[in-house]
């Protein structure tokens, strides 16, 4: 068994999804390697090594996804890995998709578990908002390409030494590579980090507008939590994408999740349903969010949330 795990790098850190994937892949035994796209800092390499990667195939991040996929395809041909694990990040999806088409192998996405039994690789994924578990077997030959959901595997170091680093071959592709990043922009959001927070106060379209969404920042501040949002709120431009919880955003598992004006679309539920305690406020008694809530208040967020804020302030 030979497994490779894909990682991006940001500020000298390997991707959390990669450390989770490496930890999981240690269960399979055999050879374990990583693919790193980024600066290739010693710190990121050490993280990959300590989580089990004995080799790292490295490419600089100014390569297009087409070039990276082609480079990985060359390495796959030479080294014949059985399994490639990606996270849900945008570059992960770009590279996994292109690589799949290049190799003629399927991608199984949204994996919550990967199992190996002899030569058989199976992936479990949750569909229909997490209500149904589907197990799918790869039947197209190696390598199997898997995109895993965030935080389904715990990341734990195993104390190994620094990995052997190889530079990825980056072939000339012509037109497929005719894409260029002109500039990069940061949109900073204030407050604690959403993914690490023990308490998350999240809002949906039901908050009305950007100004009225603001009260959630106040509530999060009083509770010592972070602010999250649904895709609709991010799409409307009220808050940056970094605050999005759900299928195409972040997956959170805080001790407490407070859902305000959120109906609970399947795509949102997969990002928060594993929170320990869920409290929700929504005017529609039929909203699916109530199906996963420990406490649900059927009411107007514009009266319930301000009353809650005032009461918390009064307690000091």
């Amino acid at each position: 068994m030979k497994t490779w795990v894909f990682s991006t790098e940001s500020d000298g850190e390997a991707a959390g999804s990669a450390l989770e994937g490496l930890t999981k892949a240690r269960e399979f035994g055999g050879e374990l390697g990583a693919i790193l796209v980024g600066a290739g800092s010693d710190a990121a390499l050490a993280q990959l090594g300590s989580h089990g990667a004995t080799t790292v195939l490295h490419a600089a991040e100014d390569n297009s996804s087409a070039v990276i996929a082609a480079g990985i395809a060359l390495a796959v041909e030479a080294e014949q890995p059985d399994l490639l694990i990606f996270g849900t990040g945008n570059l992960d999806r770009d590279v996994a998709g292109r690589l799949s088409a290049r190799l003629g192998k399927p991608v199984l996405a949204n994996a919550v578990d990967v199992t190996v039994e002899g030569d058989t690789l199976r992936v479990a994924n949750e569909i229909l908002g997490g209500s149904t578990l589907v197990v799918t077997e790869f039947a197209g030959g190696s390598p199997a390409i898997v995109i895993t959901r965030p935080k389904v595997f715990a990341a734990e170091p195993s104390g190994q030494s620094a990995p052997v680093v190889t530079a990825m071959e980056t072939p000339e592709l012509g037109h497929a590579d005719a894409v260029e990043t002109l500039s990069q922009h940061a949109e900073v959001s204030e407050g604690p980090d959403l993914e690490a927070a023990n308490i998350v106060v999240s809002g949906g379209r039901g908050m009305g507008d950007e100004a009225r969404f603001g009260v959630l920042g106040e509530l999060a501040g009083l509770l010592g939590g972070a602010v999250g949002a649904t895709r609709a709120v991010v799409d409307a431009g009220w808050v940056p994408y970094s605050l999005q919880v759900g299928q195409t955003g972040k997956t959170v598992k805080p001790d407490l999740y407070v859902a305000c004006g959120i109906s609970g679309a399947m795509q949102h539920l997969v990002g928060m349903k594993d929170s320990t305690t869920i409290i929700s406020i929504n005017k529609d008694a039929e909203a699916p969010i109530f199906g996963v809530s420990d406490l649900g208040i059927v009411g107007d967020v514009h009266t319930v949330v301000p009353a809650l804020v005032e009461a918390l302030k009064a307690r000091g």
């Binding site: 799949s100 996405a109 894409v179």
Partner: peptide, 17 residues
């Protein structure tokens, strides 16, 4: 929601995504 179809189509067409 596999989320890889646009990238696969680009690769198969030999064009940037």
């Amino acid at each position: 929601y596999t989320g890889v179809v646009p990238q696969q189509v680009a690769e198969l067409m030999g064009v940037p995504a």
